[in-house]
Amino acid sequence: MSNMSLTGKKRDYDTQRQLLGIIFIIPSVIFLLVFVVYPVCYNIILSFTDARLMKSDFSFIAFDNYKKLFQNIRFLKYVKNTLIWTVFSVVGQLALGLAIALLINKRANVTGLRSFLLVPYVVPAVALALVTKWVTNGDYGIVSWWLNWIGLLEYRQSPLAVPGSAMAVLIIVNIWRSYPFPMLIYWATLKGISHEIYDAASVDGCSAFQMFWHITLPHLKSTTTVLAILRIVWTATYFDLIWLITGGGPAGSTTHLPIMIYQTSFGTFQTGYASSISVILGLSLFVCIVFYVRKTISNDR
């Protein structure tokens, strides 16, 4: 009898606990539904309409926006820009992050240094963009002056006015801004590799490079995959820096898809058309997101 009531109590307790858990999650769920899920669906719907920015009514035009997009002769160029921007930025920040993590990994008193190296993570993109414009100013910028001095740039020219180098400047600035995140994660992963493995290898007479190649790198593989996916998604869609530094110029050489979305939406006011670009960009990143989510959640369990 008493046994029975105990299980009953336990069941009561479990239901109550479940209920509390659900109540606690409700605000988050509602918020996500209203301001994330609904907007995403709305975006997809808009992409099949001729919606304009200042009009509330619109009509469905099936795949016309998509047709128009794939016929646009500039679209391919912007896709290419997006790829260049993303690949170089991600590879650069991962490499730099790893290098610095390795540099500070084995040292004891690096907390101060680490704090300093994390600072770029929180520097406002706007401030960074303005500094970049200032140092690359054709007439008074110190970087332009240096580049001219070592013979890489014409006199009174700005690297932002030359297509290839404008993209290069943007990528460098973006690497500067975003290496701290990979650095931290790599640093944490390196800390997690047990010392015994290194000690054993050391006894076997492995060189430092061999240890790095055979022990450290394999341990970083999974971290690198997850990091790369996350950074690809964020970099491919990152807008502020390019917009504020070059605005997509010169000659559209730094226009990537987010800039194209913005210009279509707030330049020519074609909301529907802009949504279709956004959907294409989203779809191509969706694969990455799914992969990331699956990997992270399975690791978590």
């Binding site: 858990g21 975006n43 869609t237 807008f239 802009a274």
Partner: peptide, 27 residues
Amino acid sequence: FTYRGRRLIMMAILSSYCLPPIMLMIP
């Protein structure tokens, strides 16, 4: 807590974590 749909919500939150602002902008 454990309850039905927890995993789904986890996934949803993680996906929105990746979701970039520019794509939510227009809607």
